[in-house]
């Protein structure tokens, strides 16, 4: 069958967009009415979706494989944790600082990318990922070291203007995470359609050709790592509010990085919604294998899934779904923007 062609900016396209947004809003409202445990799970999914979206910028769109994103996730979480516990800051006010610090760390990690790539760059990010828990343990006075850092639930109370009470902080965080995810998705969407986005994809596909076409590889790589770290750091900051207790060996080890990578490739690297799909898988897989305590069954499945994706579904779920939908509806750019093949 011939697909229906829809042009961007046309009434039909706008209708589709509004329908999509309405469906997402409906799903969020429905989720908010569920029991507290489910709301918590969905919050976790959204936090993961943000973290994976961050990874997607570096690894999916720019082709810089990072095994160290657990460090950004952890730095974001610990920034919020330390600010709240030690300095008595309101949780929401710590987000900008967490994002900023992670952007700086991302920029620094991006610097070696100027000289090395591929396998060797992965080794550098691995170094950052492995070092993070050790550094947390080393600076015990600030981070609580191996014993961990506990944020009291009173400190996580929703702001007064919301009228929500401490026991209702779950639903408050649910909506905060939803807003953060929406902002992230809009940011990623606009970014990937900007000049920088084109430069990112060009860098991934053929670095030498990109450089020859005037792409400043240095700027692109460091900026992307900075943005990527910032977005994952945002997720980390929310995660600190979500779990309330941080420990270096809990959620910020290399295994977290591997979870994020699995989510990214399963969901669909270099797609906008892939990270959301992947986040569902990463959160619900351990839950459905009834294996939350030891994690061994889900570990085996994660590993097998990761390998299987490479062989069977390199585009991920979102990539395959996108192609499937493409059979029915094609969205072409507005005529003024010229045809793309």
């Amino acid at each position: 069958m011939t697909p229906i062609h829809v042009r961007t900016g046309s009434a039909a396209h706008r209708g589709l967009q509004i329908a999509g947004l309405a469906a997402a809003a409906g799903a969020l409202l429905l989720g908010a009415t569920m029991e507290a445990f489910r709301v918590g799970q969905l919050t976790n999914v959204m936090i993961f979706a943000i973290a994976i979206s961050g990874l997607n910028l570096a690894t999916g769109y720019t082709g810089l494989l990072s095994i160290g994103h657990s460090a950004f996730f952890g730095l974001g979480a610990y920034t919020t944790g330390v600010m709240v516990v030690t300095y008595g800051a309101a949780p929401m006010t710590t987000i900008p600082l967490a994002v900023l610090l992670c952007a700086v760390l991302g920029f620094v990690v991006g610097l070696p990318a100027l000289r090395i790539r591929g396998l060797y760059l992965a080794l550098v990010t691995l170094a950052v990922g492995v070092a993070f828990p050790e550094v947390v343990r080393r600076f015990e006075d600030l981070t609580g070291g191996a014993a961990g850092l506990v944020i009291r639930s009173r400190q996580l109370a929703p702001p007064e203007w919301t009228g929500l009470t401490v026991p209702q902080r779950g639903i408050w965080l649910y909506w905060v995470s939803a807003a953060a995810l929406l902002i992230t998705l809009v940011l990623v969407r606009n970014l990937t359609r900007s000049r920088l986005g084109i430069a990112m994809i060009a860098t991934r596909d053929n670095e030498i050709a990109a450089a020859a076409s005037g792409v400043r590889l240095a700027t692109v790589k460091t900026t992307v790592f900075g943005l990527s770290g910032a977005v994952t750091g945002l997720a980390g900051s929310l995660f600190a509010m979500y779990v309330g207790a941080l420990s270096p060996d809990g959620s910020f080890t290399l295994l977290k990085s591997i979870e994020l990578i699995t989510g990214l490739f399963l969901g669909g690297a270099a797609t906008l919604f892939g990270p959301v799909v992947g986040a569902f898988a990463v959160v619900y897989l351990p839950y459905f294998t009834a294996d939350l305590a030891s994690g061994h069954v889900s570990g085996v499945i994660f590993g097998a899934v990761l390998i299987a994706i490479v062989f069977l579904m390199p585009e991920g779920i979102a990539g395959v779904a996108g192609r499937f939908l493409g059979r029915f509806i094609r969205i072409a750019p507005h005529e003024n923007q010229g045809e793309r093949p």
Binding site: L65, G118, H296, G299, V305, I307, V310
Partner: peptide, 25 residues
């Protein structure tokens, strides 16, 4: 490069978890 790295990471996770599954942690 990315494909072989991802496969290696998958093996990394799978073998560790498999050891834990068979012989506990």
């Amino acid at each position: 490069d990315m494909a072989s790295l991802i496969v290696a990471l998958g093996l990394f996770t799978a073998f560790n978890a498999l050891a834990g599954l068979l012989w506990n942690s």
